Computed example of a mutant assay.
Amino acid sequence: MPQRVALELAVQDPAGAVIAADVGARRVELCSALGATGGITPSAALVEAVVEAAAVVPSSDAAPILEVHVLVRPRPGGFVYSPAEIDLMLREITLAGDAGADGVVLGALTPSGAVDEARMRDLIAAAEDAEVTFHRALDVIADPLAALDTLAELGVARVLTSGGAARASAGLDRLAALVERSAELGIEIMAGGGVTPADIPALLGTGVDAVHLSAKRSVVDAGGPGGGGAAGYEVTDPELARAAAVALGLPAAT
């Protein structure tokens, strides 16, 4: 029987992790400020709280204990980092590991737009036994297939990619090419980027190993002039999460 395609949800709090576990997700990517920035590193206390929340959800053969993978991204913007920023990322990786995270999600590029192999080696070494996912920095690399070779050699477990498009649903051809190449490399391809449950059948058609989405909704809660204006905040929507699980055929989805 072919391996079931995994569901990963991007979450920002313990409640999101519980929802992910309830619908049968395999992993969460834990981050902060997702909608405003695309995601930055969460606090060490938040990592601890989400790891604790994931650990108390009963597991079964159909729905194993949820894995917590922590985004390590020191700021919004591009992926070319200064020595000071790399030092901060190394510290964040250590803190995530100490808190019990199963993996880290990161990426570093050179000024010419290639994988920064030297920086990545240091970051991967800091992760020790935790899995490393290379995030959508891949989508700004001119030759993602060549980058995939490099990342596999470095020991990266998987890449998160939209296939270079604004939304994964528009990057199907490149996703399929990455999947084809990954079969020779032993690295997973996870489709993500503006994914909705309705996009999942087409993404499955490319052969990806996993699908990643935020399944979030906004809560209106104006902070006033000193609290971010009328932006409110985001939470994981259980109905969207469940719809994604159903589209993937996950057994825990009800």
Results as ranks from 00 to 15, higher is better:
Leu123Val: 01
Leu123Arg: 01
Ile124Asp: 05
Ala125Glu: 11
Ala125Tyr: 00
Ala125Asp: 09
Ala126Thr: 04
Ala126Met: 07
Glu128Asp: 15
Asp129His: 14
Ala130Ser: 13
Ala130Cys: 11
Ala130Lys: 12
Val132Ile: 11
Thr133Met: 09
Phe134Val: 08
Phe134Gly: 01
Phe134Asn: 03
Phe134Ile: 10
His135Ile: 10
His135Tyr: 04
His135Trp: 00
Arg136Asp: 03
Arg136Ile: 04
Arg136Asn: 01
Leu138Glu: 03
Val140Cys: 12
Val140Thr: 13
Ile141Gln: 02
Ala142Cys: 06
Asp143Ile: 09
Asp143Ala: 14
Asp143Glu: 13
Asp143Asn: 13
Asp143Phe: 06
Pro144Ala: 12
Pro144Ser: 08
Pro144Trp: 03
Leu145Val: 15
Leu145Gly: 15
Leu145Phe: 09
Leu145Glu: 14
Leu145Gln: 13
Ala146Arg: 10
Ala147Lys: 04
Leu148Glu: 04
Leu148His: 05
Asp149Asn: 13
Asp149Ile: 07
Leu151His: 03
Leu151Asp: 04
Leu151Asn: 01
Ala152His: 11
Glu153Tyr: 08
Leu154Glu: 11
Leu154Phe: 11
Val156Arg: 01
Val156Lys: 01
Ala157Pro: 01
Ala157Val: 09
Ala157Cys: 05
Ala157Trp: 12
Arg158Gln: 12
Arg158Asp: 04
Arg158Asn: 07
Val159Pro: 03
Val159Ile: 15
Leu160Asn: 00
Leu160His: 00
Ser162Pro: 02
Ser162Thr: 00
Gly163Met: 07
Gly164Pro: 03
Ala165Leu: 09
Ala166Gly: 14
Arg167Glu: 14
Arg167Pro: 09
Ala168His: 00
Ala168Ile: 04
Ser169Ala: 14
Ser169Gly: 11
Ala170Gln: 15
Ala170Lys: 09
Gly171Asp: 05
Gly171Met: 06
Gly171Val: 03
Gly171Arg: 08
Leu172Pro: 10
Leu172Val: 07
Asp173Arg: 12
Asp173Ser: 14
Arg174Glu: 14
Arg174Asp: 08
Leu175Ile: 12
Ala176Glu: 15
Ala176Gln: 13
Ala177Lys: 10
Ala177Thr: 08
Ala177Asp: 14
Ala177Glu: 15
Ala177Phe: 05
Leu178Thr: 05
Val179Glu: 03
Val179Ile: 14
Val179Pro: 10
Val179Phe: 10
Val179Asn: 08
Glu180Lys: 13
Arg181Thr: 07
Arg181His: 11
Ser182Tyr: 05
Ala183Cys: 10
Ala183Phe: 08
Leu185Ile: 09
Leu185His: 07
Gly186Leu: 11
Ile187Ala: 01
Ile187Thr: 07
Glu188Phe: 12
Ile189Ser: 09
Ile189Trp: 08
Ile189Phe: 05
Met190Val: 10
Ala191Glu: 03
Gly192Tyr: 03
Gly192His: 05
Gly192Ile: 06
Gly193Pro: 02
Gly194Lys: 00
Gly194Phe: 01
Val195Thr: 02
Val195Cys: 02
